[in-house]
Structures are given as C-alpha cells and as structure tokens.
Computed example of a mutant assay.
Amino acid sequence: MTNALALPMPSAVGNLDAYIQAANRFPMLSEAEETSLARRFRDEQDLDAARQLVLSHLRLVISIARGYLGYGLPHADLIQEGNIGLMKAVKRYDPDRGVRLVSFAIHWIKAEIHEYVLKNWRLVKVATTKAQRKLFFNLRSLKPGSEALTPGQTLEVAKQLGVKPEEVTEMETRLGGHDLALEANDDEDEKFAPIAWLADSNSEPTRVLEAREYDRLQSDGLQAALAGLDERSRRIVEARWLAEGEAATLHELAAEFGVSAERIRQIEAKALQKMKGLLSA
C-alpha cells in the first residue's frame, strides 16, 4: 500500500498553486486500499488511516471548488470549506456499503461549499428554502444569456427545476441585485445613503436634549403662569385642562363655586388669556 504519510503535508498558508501541486502529489487509492483504511478508521479509530483517506481525496475538493469560482469568492476559502466536507464524509463513510468514497464524499463537499457560498455571497442571505437553494445554484447555468428571462424561458426553467415560475422570477431578481453600503463614503453624498432613510431624526441625541429642554421650559413657564392666577381661576384651569383623569364640566365647577356655568366660562376664558400673555412674555 502506498503510504501517503511519507509525502509532505500541503501547507495551509502561502501560495495557492503550491498547495494544489502538493495535494496532487498524493497518490490515488485503489479500492482495496481505500476499503482497508476505512475499516481501520471505523473499527479501530485509526486516525492515520483517516488522514490518508483525506489526503488522497484533496484533489477532488480542489476540482469541485473550482466549479464555484463564478460566485466571486476566494478559491482558497472554497477549498477550505470543501475540505471540511471531505473530513465529514470520511467520518461517516461505511466501506461495506459497496460505494467508493469519492462518490460518497461529493455530496458532503458540495454541501459545505454551498453553505459557505450562501453565507458569504451577499450580506443578506439570498436562499433559505430547499427550492431557493436549487434555484441559486442552477439558475445561472440554465439561463441562455445574460439578459432577463422571458416569460416562456421562466416557465421552462421552472419546469426543469420543479419550482414555481414566480420563484424563478424572484431568484433572478435577487441574483441581479447587489449589496449597498449603509453609509456613504463621501460627505457630500451622505444624505443619499440608506442610513439617512432609516434614521429617526427625533432620536438624534441633540434633538432629544432639545426636546427635553423645551419640555422643561414649557413646564416651568406653565407653573409660573398658573402662579400668576388667583386661587379660583387656577382651580378652574387645572380642573378643565390639566386634570389627569376626566376634565371637569362647567356645570360641576359652577356647583362647586356656587355660580352659573356661564360665569365659570368667563373666568376660564379670562384666566387662559392672562396665562397666554405670561407664557409669551
């Protein structure tokens, strides 16, 4: 059996081409070698056997990762995520099922790369459901060109992927969009940045302080204006306008002071006029 451990490990840092060359130097395993190593790992927890299984399939990860370069993500990161999927496949692989590791590992490698692409392609995740994931990874290859799909093409793509036409249209719109910075880089463009649309000007610290100061001055001014009224006028204004519960009626105050409701109305009007003059002074 060829011993993959005798070869130098590919470096995790440095030149990507050097890593790929090192990974390609690991020999492919025969079916008998692969089965023997897999059984040693499964039955004896032999980590050296698991390491040889992983190293001999690094070139598979590199090949699969290359197919996802169109999403604009670093090739090295795609390979790294694929390697995680490969290690998961080795951990779960059962050699007695009659399936080669390469066939079993493809699913796990792609699953990890898919998850990485979906999380990092945009700030906002573009695909969450199973149907959306299928569309995300297949729509580009099924589109005849860079132009938007026609209604007929949309129906054809939906039929091929087994999804609804409106789902195809929605995913095409998502793929055609792009991330937008929340804040503008140039000061002169600041008012056009999304942060300006989202911000609540009333919550801006200086506005809050100004509002608090205004309320304080209004409260102090109101108390000073009330202090300038005689006791009966102050009682009528407070009962009619400043009561926490239901305001008193003219008739209720008339009964309290033993005068007519019209007289209460006159006293109220005169008191409010006097307070207005005090507040505006």
Rank of each mutant, 00 (worst) to 15 (best):
V13N: 06
Q52N: 03
D43P: 02
A76R: 15
V54T: 13
L78N: 07
L47Q: 14
I62Y: 06
A22S: 15
A105N: 02
Y19D: 00
A32L: 12
G72H: 13
Q80P: 00
R59M: 08
S63I: 00
H75T: 07
R97C: 11
L29I: 07
Q45Y: 10
M28R: 13
D48H: 09
D48F: 12
Y93G: 01
A65Y: 01
G67F: 01
I106A: 15
R100S: 14
N15F: 01
R59P: 01
D96M: 11
Q80E: 06
R25W: 03
I62C: 09
I84S: 05
A6W: 03
Q45R: 15
L47P: 00
I106W: 02
R92D: 15
D77Q: 11
L7D: 05
I64S: 01
A23G: 10
H57Y: 08
A18W: 03
N83F: 00
K88P: 01
D96C: 05
L73A: 13
R51H: 03
I79Y: 00
D77F: 07
E33M: 04
L69P: 03
P27W: 10
H75W: 12
D96G: 15
G85Y: 00
L37G: 05
Y93F: 15
A65F: 02
L29F: 07
D94Q: 13
K91M: 14
P74W: 14
A4M: 08
D43C: 08
G82E: 00
P74A: 14
G70V: 11
G98Q: 12
G72I: 13
R25H: 14
L7Q: 07
Y93S: 02
A49D: 06
A49L: 08
E81G: 02
G72R: 14
D17M: 10
R25S: 13
N24Q: 15
A49F: 10
P8A: 05
G67M: 07
L53N: 03
R92F: 13
P27V: 11
Q52I: 02
M9Q: 08
Y71I: 12
Q80G: 11
Q45W: 09
A23H: 04
A38C: 10
L16Q: 10
F104E: 01
H57N: 14
E34A: 03
S56H: 01
E34V: 03
N24K: 15
P27L: 09
D77Y: 06
S36M: 12
L37E: 05
G72V: 13
G98T: 11
R100Q: 12
N15Y: 01
V102G: 02
S63V: 05
I64C: 03
L29D: 04
S103F: 07
N24P: 04
A32R: 13
I20A: 06
S103V: 13
A18K: 07
E81W: 05
L78E: 03
V99R: 09
D77G: 06
P10V: 06
I84R: 10
Y93E: 02
G72K: 14
E31G: 10
G70I: 07
V54G: 01
Q45A: 14
D48R: 09
F26C: 08
Q45C: 06
E33S: 12
Q21Y: 04
K88T: 04
F26N: 09
A65V: 04
L29Q: 03
S36I: 09
S103K: 04
P10D: 06
R25F: 06
L69I: 14
Y19N: 01
Y68K: 08
A4V: 10
